[in-house]
Design a protein around this nucleic acid. Structure first.
Length: 435
DNA sequence: TCTGGGGTCCTAGGACCC
DNA sequence: TCTGGGGTCCTAGGACCC
């Protein structure tokens, strides 16, 4: 009994994801306030001015690849007057927020996937409007309001939306917008897309796929799922399913709590003394603790690592890390600092030229939920919460207002940022002047 | 001379337990 | 001489992403 209900014809709305991705994001941000660089090759360097991590179209055209060490392309830079910028994350974060806010005002649901891209859920919209037109509207508005060009890909799964976005970037005649809802179009694009361009297929896996005769995205989509799962993993199987139009990855609008926090830097110049490394590790610990409080978490596990330059074969190599547990999870900088200093001394060995160190926090708890054992006396530092709050507030207004003695003032490990652009949008003193 | 930083997820294998 | 089987938990390492 019970199945007497009338059968209501239920039409499942067509799932539709959009992927909006900014073009050459960091380079575009730098150019935003330097219109004189509009058609010039621009690259943005990683921390320490080490590698090229973003290139304008003109720089790409010169053959500068992602991740190329800057020192290897000095001649090219001189010859073509390539503009090099140190990475200015405060600026990029600010522009990113403007882009995301603009998109947010136009779509029902948004997942900010990284600093320069976001997924939007357009399910339901697909029946009401022309997707192509809608994508164009997103594109236009972001360009008009923020000044950054994007590409928009739309499709029934996230992986296909990524692929659509790839098509929009690669083929100029699309005008930066690709609607990949039709299966025929999906297959057409997949047939001419190398498998390593698929989201989730990296260098290693594409090599193995090629060896199996799978060279295009379409071949992966049509591959036997059981074989894929057995030879690789459930992850790649999911990717193959997504390429077939079966949505396996859903929107994640709420950013999940972090599992770990890492703060690490390469040093501007190699350092040798424990004193210098301790100063660096202290600064990393302070920053990590700030991030931890921002996440509203407490950490119980702390790792410190340090290493020499693995590229330099002429010096002795050393790399080590050590992990330790705090008796109770904490978010107090002083407690974390005390431990990282001890760990630092424990793995430090004299006689090496260190070029990188870092601090990692893990095993997080929300403050107050950690189960204390019955007889344990909770000896958290007094006034911890209040003190940390004051610290964060003051340092938010101006970085480095308050600092800890163990950070010292030595600067030999500090990274190079020799071509840093001004903080156009976040510091009053550096706002561009209009004459 | 000079080669980034910060994340996630999955899997395999060992330890341990019953 | 015989030498189980299955579960859980943890960790290291490998792959990926931007």
């Amino acid at each position: 009994m019970g199945s007497a209900k009338p059968v209501v014809p239920f039409k499942k709305p067509v799932q539709c994801f959009a992927l909006i991705d900014c073009n050459n994001f960091y380079a575009s941000c730098e150019r935003l306030f330097r219109p004189d660089l509009k058609y010039k090759p621009v690259i943005v360097a990683s921390n320490n001015d080490g590698c090229a991590v973003a290139r304008s179209a003109e720089a790409k055209a010169l053959g500068i690849k992602m991740g190329t060490p800057i020192f290897k392309i000095q001649d090219l830079i001189r010859e073509h007057d390539v503009q090099v910028f140190s990475s200015n994350y405060a600026l990029y974060a600010d522009i990113s927020n403007r882009v995301m806010t603009t998109i947010e005002g136009m779509v029902p649901r948004l997942e900010v996937y990284s600093i320069d891209e976001a997924f939007a859920d357009l399910t339901g919209l697909a029946n009401a409007v022309s997707l192509e037109d809608f994508g164009r509207e997103l594109y236009d508005k972001i360009e008009r309001w923020v000044g950054v060009r994007t590409c928009v890909g739309m499709a029934p799964t996230k992986t296909l939306a990524k692929l659509a976005n790839y098509g929009a970037k690669k083929y100029v005649k699309t005008g930066g917008v690709v609607d990949l809802t039709s299966q025929a179009r999906q297959r057409k694009l997949m047939a001419i897309t190398p498998v390593d361009e698929v989201w989730g297929v990296g260098r290693k896996i594409s090599k193995r796929l090629n060896a199996m005769g799978i060279e295009t995205a379409l071949q992966l989509a049509d591959a036997d799922l059981k074989t894929i799962r057995k030879t690789f993993s459930v992850v790649l199987e999911r990717t193959a399913r997504e390429l077939r139009g079966e949505s396996c990855l859903s929107m994640e609008e709420i950013t999940p709590t972090k599992q770990q926090i890492v703060v690490s830097r390469s040093f501007g110049t190699p350092v040798e003394t424990l004193d210098s490394i301790e100063s660096a590790v202290a600064s990393f610990s302070v920053r990590a603790a700030e991030k931890l409080r921002y996440e509203r978490q407490s950490a119980k596990q702390v790792t410190v690592f340090m290493r020499t330059n693995p590229f330099n074969k002429s010096h002795a190599q050393y790399s080590n890390s050590v992990t330790s547990e705090l008796p109770m999870p904490t978010q107090d900088t002083r407690e974390l600092l005390a431990l990282t200093q001890v760990l630092c001394a424990r793995i430090y060995r004299p006689g090496y030229r260190y070029t990188k160190a870092g601090v990692m926090l893990s095993d997080f708890y929300e403050p107050g939920v950690f189960q204390t054992s019955l007889f344990e006396v909770h000896d958290a530092k007094p006034k911890s919460k209040e003190l940390m709050a004051v610290l964060d507030t003051l340092n938010k207004q101006k970085t480095g207002t308050l600092y800890f003695a163990s950070q010292k003032s030595k600067t030999d490990w500090h990274m190079k940022r020799e071509r840093l652009s001004p903080a156009y949008t976040t510091r009053w003193a550096e706002i561009p002047k209009v004459r």
